[in-house]
Amino acid sequence: MTAALWQYFLGGVVDGAIFALVAAGFVLIYQVTGIINLAQGEFVMIGGMTAAALTTGGMPVVGAAAIAVVVAATAGGLTYLLAIRPARGGTALTLLFITLGVDVALRGLALFVWGTNPYSLPPFSAGNAIVVFGGALPPQALWVLGTDVLVFAALYLFFRHTRMGTAVRAAVANPPIASTFGIPLRTFAFGSFVVAAAIGGLGGVVITPIPGVQYDAGLTYGLAGFVSAVLGGIDSLPGALLGGFTLGIVEHVAAGLLSPGWDQGIGFFILLLVLVVRPQGLLGRAARRA
Protein backbone atom coordinates (compact mmCIF):
# COMPACT_ATOMS: atom_id res chain seq x y z
CA MET A 1 0.00 0.00 0.00
CA THR A 2 2.71 2.44 1.00
CA ALA A 3 4.68 1.50 -2.09
CA ALA A 4 1.68 2.13 -4.30
CA LEU A 5 1.04 5.45 -2.61
CA TRP A 6 4.67 6.44 -3.13
CA GLN A 7 4.41 5.55 -6.79
CA TYR A 8 1.26 7.67 -7.15
CA PHE A 9 3.11 10.46 -5.39
CA LEU A 10 6.01 10.29 -7.85
CA GLY A 11 3.59 10.30 -10.76
CA GLY A 12 1.99 13.36 -9.20
CA VAL A 13 5.35 15.10 -9.03
CA VAL A 14 5.77 14.70 -12.80
CA ASP A 15 2.23 15.98 -13.41
CA GLY A 16 2.85 18.79 -10.98
CA ALA A 17 5.99 19.86 -12.81
CA ILE A 18 4.08 20.49 -16.04
CA PHE A 19 1.08 22.02 -14.24
CA ALA A 20 3.45 24.47 -12.57
CA LEU A 21 4.80 25.56 -15.96
CA VAL A 22 1.31 26.17 -17.34
CA ALA A 23 0.38 27.98 -14.12
CA ALA A 24 3.48 30.17 -14.47
CA GLY A 25 2.15 31.30 -17.84
CA PHE A 26 -1.26 32.08 -16.36
CA VAL A 27 0.25 34.07 -13.53
CA LEU A 28 2.59 35.97 -15.83
CA ILE A 29 -0.24 37.09 -18.10
CA TYR A 30 -2.60 37.81 -15.24
CA GLN A 31 -0.03 39.86 -13.36
CA VAL A 32 0.89 41.98 -16.32
CA THR A 33 -2.49 42.37 -18.01
CA GLY A 34 -5.17 41.33 -15.49
CA ILE A 35 -6.46 38.83 -18.06
CA ILE A 36 -7.24 35.22 -17.26
CA ASN A 37 -6.01 33.47 -20.38
CA LEU A 38 -8.07 30.33 -20.88
CA ALA A 39 -6.03 29.51 -24.01
CA GLN A 40 -2.84 28.93 -21.99
CA GLY A 41 -3.06 25.13 -22.28
CA GLU A 42 -3.14 25.29 -26.06
CA PHE A 43 0.43 26.61 -26.08
CA VAL A 44 1.53 23.39 -24.36
CA MET A 45 -0.30 21.40 -27.01
CA ILE A 46 1.23 23.49 -29.81
CA GLY A 47 4.71 22.99 -28.39
CA GLY A 48 4.26 19.27 -27.96
CA MET A 49 2.56 18.78 -31.31
CA THR A 50 5.10 20.77 -33.30
CA ALA A 51 8.05 18.97 -31.73
CA ALA A 52 6.43 15.56 -32.13
CA ALA A 53 5.39 16.18 -35.74
CA LEU A 54 8.83 17.49 -36.72
CA THR A 55 10.74 14.61 -35.13
CA THR A 56 8.32 12.15 -36.69
CA GLY A 57 9.27 13.83 -39.96
CA GLY A 58 12.93 13.07 -39.27
CA MET A 59 14.24 16.22 -37.63
CA PRO A 60 16.63 15.91 -34.67
CA VAL A 61 14.97 16.51 -31.32
CA VAL A 62 16.98 19.63 -30.44
CA GLY A 63 16.02 21.45 -33.63
CA ALA A 64 12.41 20.33 -33.38
CA ALA A 65 12.24 21.51 -29.78
CA ALA A 66 13.65 24.92 -30.64
CA ILE A 67 11.22 25.39 -33.49
CA ALA A 68 8.33 24.20 -31.30
CA VAL A 69 9.07 26.84 -28.67
CA VAL A 70 9.28 29.53 -31.34
CA VAL A 71 6.00 28.39 -32.89
CA ALA A 72 4.27 28.46 -29.49
CA ALA A 73 5.70 31.90 -28.70
CA THR A 74 4.50 33.14 -32.08
CA ALA A 75 1.03 31.79 -31.35
CA GLY A 76 1.10 33.68 -28.05
CA GLY A 77 2.20 36.90 -29.71
CA LEU A 78 -0.45 36.60 -32.41
CA THR A 79 -3.08 35.90 -29.77
CA TYR A 80 -2.24 39.20 -28.17
CA LEU A 81 -2.01 41.20 -31.38
CA LEU A 82 -5.06 39.79 -33.14
CA ALA A 83 -7.47 39.04 -30.30
CA ILE A 84 -6.54 40.83 -27.09
CA ARG A 85 -5.15 44.17 -28.19
CA PRO A 86 -8.04 45.12 -30.53
CA ALA A 87 -10.43 44.55 -27.61
CA ARG A 88 -8.56 46.62 -25.04
CA GLY A 89 -10.98 48.64 -23.01
CA GLY A 90 -13.37 45.69 -22.97
CA THR A 91 -14.64 44.39 -19.64
CA ALA A 92 -12.83 41.61 -17.81
CA LEU A 93 -15.54 39.27 -18.98
CA THR A 94 -15.23 40.27 -22.64
CA LEU A 95 -11.52 39.55 -22.47
CA LEU A 96 -12.12 36.23 -20.72
CA PHE A 97 -14.61 35.21 -23.41
CA ILE A 98 -12.07 36.24 -26.05
CA THR A 99 -9.45 33.93 -24.61
CA LEU A 100 -12.10 31.22 -24.59
CA GLY A 101 -12.63 31.85 -28.31
CA VAL A 102 -8.87 31.72 -28.91
CA ASP A 103 -8.72 28.42 -27.04
CA VAL A 104 -11.40 26.89 -29.23
CA ALA A 105 -9.87 28.33 -32.40
CA LEU A 106 -6.36 27.07 -31.65
CA ARG A 107 -7.69 23.60 -30.93
CA GLY A 108 -9.62 23.63 -34.21
CA LEU A 109 -6.51 24.79 -36.04
CA ALA A 110 -4.46 21.99 -34.50
CA LEU A 111 -7.07 19.52 -35.65
CA PHE A 112 -6.75 20.84 -39.17
CA VAL A 113 -2.97 20.77 -39.20
CA TRP A 114 -2.30 17.53 -37.36
CA GLY A 115 -5.55 15.58 -37.44
CA THR A 116 -6.84 13.51 -34.56
CA ASN A 117 -3.97 11.03 -34.36
CA PRO A 118 -1.92 10.95 -31.18
CA TYR A 119 1.75 11.84 -31.68
CA SER A 120 4.66 10.72 -29.59
CA LEU A 121 8.16 11.98 -29.01
CA PRO A 122 11.13 9.79 -28.02
CA PRO A 123 12.57 10.45 -24.55
CA PHE A 124 15.50 12.90 -24.63
CA SER A 125 17.83 10.55 -22.81
CA ALA A 126 17.92 6.79 -23.02
CA GLY A 127 18.07 4.60 -19.96
CA ASN A 128 15.99 2.70 -17.52
CA ALA A 129 13.53 4.11 -15.07
CA ILE A 130 15.17 5.89 -12.16
CA VAL A 131 14.40 4.25 -8.85
CA VAL A 132 13.69 6.61 -5.97
CA PHE A 133 13.12 4.86 -2.64
CA GLY A 134 11.50 1.96 -4.42
CA GLY A 135 9.34 4.07 -6.71
CA ALA A 136 10.05 4.46 -10.42
CA LEU A 137 10.44 7.70 -12.34
CA PRO A 138 10.88 7.81 -16.10
CA PRO A 139 14.21 9.50 -17.03
CA GLN A 140 12.23 12.12 -18.94
CA ALA A 141 10.80 13.29 -15.62
CA LEU A 142 14.21 14.77 -14.83
CA TRP A 143 14.00 16.86 -17.99
CA VAL A 144 10.59 18.16 -16.94
CA LEU A 145 11.75 18.94 -13.41
CA GLY A 146 14.92 20.52 -14.80
CA THR A 147 12.82 22.75 -17.04
CA ASP A 148 10.84 23.85 -13.98
CA VAL A 149 14.02 24.81 -12.18
CA LEU A 150 15.31 26.66 -15.22
CA VAL A 151 12.09 28.54 -15.97
CA PHE A 152 11.31 29.56 -12.41
CA ALA A 153 14.92 30.56 -11.74
CA ALA A 154 14.93 32.65 -14.90
CA LEU A 155 11.66 34.33 -13.96
CA TYR A 156 12.97 35.03 -10.47
CA LEU A 157 16.18 36.53 -11.75
CA PHE A 158 14.33 38.60 -14.31
CA PHE A 159 11.86 40.09 -11.87
CA ARG A 160 14.27 40.62 -8.98
CA HIS A 161 17.57 41.43 -10.61
CA THR A 162 17.00 43.19 -13.91
CA ARG A 163 15.96 46.76 -14.59
CA MET A 164 13.31 45.59 -16.97
CA GLY A 165 11.87 43.17 -14.43
CA THR A 166 11.62 45.99 -11.93
CA ALA A 167 9.90 48.13 -14.55
CA VAL A 168 7.37 45.35 -15.16
CA ARG A 169 6.71 45.06 -11.45
CA ALA A 170 6.23 48.81 -11.20
CA ALA A 171 3.86 48.74 -14.14
CA VAL A 172 1.82 45.99 -12.49
CA ALA A 173 1.69 47.80 -9.16
CA ASN A 174 0.50 51.10 -10.58
CA PRO A 175 -0.23 51.29 -14.31
CA PRO A 176 -1.11 55.03 -14.54
CA ILE A 177 2.03 56.14 -12.73
CA ALA A 178 4.17 53.64 -14.60
CA SER A 179 3.00 54.98 -17.94
CA THR A 180 3.81 58.54 -16.91
CA PHE A 181 7.34 57.32 -16.27
CA GLY A 182 7.41 56.05 -19.83
CA ILE A 183 7.09 52.40 -18.99
CA PRO A 184 5.58 50.78 -22.11
CA LEU A 185 2.61 48.85 -20.73
CA ARG A 186 1.46 47.49 -24.07
CA THR A 187 4.87 46.15 -24.92
CA PHE A 188 4.91 44.37 -21.58
CA ALA A 189 1.45 42.93 -22.22
CA PHE A 190 2.63 41.65 -25.59
CA GLY A 191 5.78 40.32 -23.97
CA SER A 192 3.83 38.52 -21.26
CA PHE A 193 1.84 36.63 -23.89
CA VAL A 194 4.96 35.71 -25.86
CA VAL A 195 6.89 34.55 -22.81
CA ALA A 196 3.92 32.72 -21.27
CA ALA A 197 3.34 30.92 -24.56
CA ALA A 198 7.04 30.08 -24.89
CA ILE A 199 7.04 28.62 -21.37
CA GLY A 200 3.93 26.64 -22.24
CA GLY A 201 5.49 25.46 -25.51
CA LEU A 202 8.69 24.41 -23.74
CA GLY A 203 6.60 22.53 -21.19
CA GLY A 204 4.80 20.80 -24.04
CA VAL A 205 8.10 19.73 -25.58
CA VAL A 206 9.55 18.21 -22.42
CA ILE A 207 6.35 16.53 -21.19
CA THR A 208 5.27 14.97 -24.49
CA PRO A 209 7.68 11.97 -24.37
CA ILE A 210 5.76 10.75 -21.30
CA PRO A 211 2.03 10.87 -22.15
CA GLY A 212 2.21 11.69 -25.90
CA VAL A 213 0.10 14.47 -27.36
CA GLN A 214 -2.90 15.04 -29.58
CA TYR A 215 -4.84 18.04 -30.81
CA ASP A 216 -7.17 18.27 -27.80
CA ALA A 217 -4.50 17.83 -25.11
CA GLY A 218 -4.36 21.57 -24.46
CA LEU A 219 -7.67 21.65 -22.68
CA THR A 220 -6.51 19.27 -19.96
CA TYR A 221 -3.22 21.13 -19.47
CA GLY A 222 -4.95 24.47 -19.49
CA LEU A 223 -7.57 23.46 -16.96
CA ALA A 224 -5.01 21.89 -14.64
CA GLY A 225 -2.74 24.90 -15.08
CA PHE A 226 -5.29 27.41 -14.01
CA VAL A 227 -6.49 25.28 -11.11
CA SER A 228 -2.84 25.31 -10.01
CA ALA A 229 -2.58 29.04 -10.53
CA VAL A 230 -5.72 29.80 -8.53
CA LEU A 231 -4.67 27.28 -5.89
CA GLY A 232 -1.28 28.90 -5.43
CA GLY A 233 -2.55 32.45 -5.80
CA ILE A 234 -3.09 33.84 -9.26
CA ASP A 235 -0.81 36.80 -8.63
CA SER A 236 2.10 34.79 -7.27
CA LEU A 237 4.81 32.96 -9.25
CA PRO A 238 5.98 30.92 -6.24
CA GLY A 239 2.28 30.16 -5.80
CA ALA A 240 2.20 28.72 -9.32
CA LEU A 241 5.04 26.38 -8.41
CA LEU A 242 3.44 25.34 -5.14
CA GLY A 243 -0.04 25.09 -6.66
CA GLY A 244 1.18 23.03 -9.60
CA PHE A 245 2.91 20.41 -7.50
CA THR A 246 0.12 20.32 -4.90
CA LEU A 247 -2.50 19.75 -7.56
CA GLY A 248 -0.41 17.19 -9.45
CA ILE A 249 0.26 15.14 -6.35
CA VAL A 250 -3.25 15.36 -4.86
CA GLU A 251 -4.87 14.54 -8.20
CA HIS A 252 -2.57 11.62 -8.90
CA VAL A 253 -2.81 10.08 -5.44
CA ALA A 254 -6.58 10.51 -5.25
CA ALA A 255 -7.11 9.13 -8.74
CA GLY A 256 -4.86 6.19 -7.86
CA LEU A 257 -6.92 5.43 -4.80
CA LEU A 258 -10.33 6.01 -6.44
CA SER A 259 -10.25 5.49 -10.18
CA PRO A 260 -8.35 7.29 -12.94
CA GLY A 261 -11.49 8.99 -14.25
CA TRP A 262 -11.86 11.06 -11.11
CA ASP A 263 -8.58 12.97 -11.34
CA GLN A 264 -9.96 16.01 -13.16
CA GLY A 265 -13.03 16.02 -10.98
CA ILE A 266 -10.82 16.13 -7.91
CA GLY A 267 -8.75 18.93 -9.37
CA PHE A 268 -11.82 21.01 -9.94
CA PHE A 269 -13.29 20.16 -6.61
CA ILE A 270 -10.11 21.59 -5.12
CA LEU A 271 -10.54 24.67 -7.29
CA LEU A 272 -14.08 25.21 -6.00
CA LEU A 273 -12.90 24.71 -2.46
CA VAL A 274 -10.07 27.21 -2.84
CA LEU A 275 -12.28 29.77 -4.56
CA VAL A 276 -14.69 29.67 -1.67
CA VAL A 277 -12.39 29.27 1.31
CA ARG A 278 -9.36 31.23 0.21
CA PRO A 279 -9.97 33.00 -3.10
CA GLN A 280 -6.57 34.66 -2.99
CA GLY A 281 -4.91 31.22 -3.10
CA LEU A 282 -2.19 29.76 -0.91
CA LEU A 283 0.42 32.45 -1.52
CA GLY A 284 -1.56 35.18 -3.27
CA ARG A 285 -2.25 38.62 -1.91
CA ALA A 286 -5.59 39.52 -3.43
CA ALA A 287 -8.13 37.64 -5.47
CA ARG A 288 -8.83 40.59 -7.68
CA ARG A 289 -6.93 43.67 -8.63
CA ALA A 290 -8.42 46.72 -7.03
Binding site: I98, A105, G108, F112
Partner: peptide, 19 residues
Protein backbone atom coordinates in the same frame (compact mmCIF):
# COMPACT_ATOMS: atom_id res chain seq x y z
CA UNK B 1 -9.81 18.98 -43.33
CA UNK B 2 -12.18 17.18 -41.06
CA UNK B 3 -15.58 18.64 -40.34
CA UNK B 4 -14.58 19.24 -36.72
CA UNK B 5 -12.30 21.96 -38.00
CA UNK B 6 -15.42 24.13 -37.68
CA UNK B 7 -14.53 24.82 -34.08
CA UNK B 8 -11.69 26.98 -35.41
CA UNK B 9 -14.22 29.22 -37.12
CA UNK B 10 -16.55 29.24 -34.12
CA UNK B 11 -13.64 30.40 -31.98
CA UNK B 12 -12.65 33.05 -34.50
CA UNK B 13 -16.25 34.25 -34.76
CA UNK B 14 -16.51 34.49 -30.98
CA UNK B 15 -13.36 36.62 -30.84
CA UNK B 16 -14.45 38.77 -33.77
CA UNK B 17 -17.91 39.35 -32.31
CA UNK B 18 -16.47 40.42 -28.97
CA UNK B 19 -14.10 42.85 -30.64
Amino acid sequence: ARGDFQSFFLGVILVAMLI
